[in-house]
Design a protein around this nucleic acid. Structure first.
Lengths: 135, 135
DNA sequence: CATTACGTTTACGTTAACGTAAAGCATGAT
DNA sequence: ATCATGCTTTACGTTAACGTAAACGTAATG
């Protein structure tokens, strides 16, 4: 049950073009196997792609996302390296947590606007009811 | 107490260049008053800039952010317009909520890596203690 | 009064992240 | 056999969001 995917399988699944997938490979963010000349994607390849697209949705650059993906892979090294690594993780987390706060504020603002709209709509509903009662 | 800001006041405060601020104006996302030829920014101008930068951090395009800013301003119009508007708000909210989920997953993944690192570091700490006890 | 600091406009340059098109190979269906 | 389908490489084009530089105005300061 070693499932594999063609390039358009993935393109369809993630709603992107094959050009995009080839571009990611060209830049070194994907390295699928080949069947002759054709690209064969494994489940890990698929996961990498998903992570890339997730980062993209959050406004990370491909390089930033690639760094995160590398981070997921390995928590190894000597003490010095580990300590530096933890600092780096902390920076990334701070960045993501700021995005989280930004998002919370935007969603709250948006909800306020939505409530205002609903109120205005309710007014329309009332006048409609009134006029329909009058007529 | 009608506070105003120069272009470099805002550039310093938000840690961007004056070029960036002029670019936003050139594209119609800001419209400061003028003192002769010099740009004078009001608190609302400053707020607009903050909203733009917030959107940018979340990976929104300037146009998308501008649409959000327009949304904040006005919940008016006839019933048809209000209904369309609410649908549009719902779409935006869905998009932002997806970002929220993406962020939660990334932060969780990052925390796992961090924990692994801490564990590895603790190992180093133990062997250090051991060797120091031995020596 | 020359320098320093801050502002202005105009305009060409740059980078990331793809889009688009051309030209060709392989394979299964009609 | 040829037609459609799906894959390939190569390569030039495009857009957003600024960077960078030139050339200039103005106002305070040593």
């Amino acid at each position: 049950m070693k499932k594999t995917y063609s390039i358009s399988d993935l393109a369809d699944e993630f709603d992107i073009t094959t050009r995009t997938i080839r571009f990611y490979e060209e830049k070194g963010y994907l390295s699928p196997k080949r069947d002759g000349t054709r690209r064969i994607y494994s489940p890990p390849d698929r996961t990498s792609l998903r992570l890339i697209l997730r980062g993209k949705r959050l406004g990370l650059s491909l390089d930033e996302t690639a760094e995160l993906i590398r981070m997921y892979g390995s928590a190894q090294g000597n003490r010095q390296q580990l300590e530096k690594f933890i600092v780096r993780i902390g920076e990334k987390r701070a960045e993501l947590e700021r995005k989280q706060r930004d998002l919370a504020v935007m969603l709250s603002d948006l909800k306020n606007v939505e409530d205002q709209c609903q109120l205005a709509l309710a007014e329309y509903g009332n006048s409609m009811n009134n006029t329909s009662e009058i007529s």
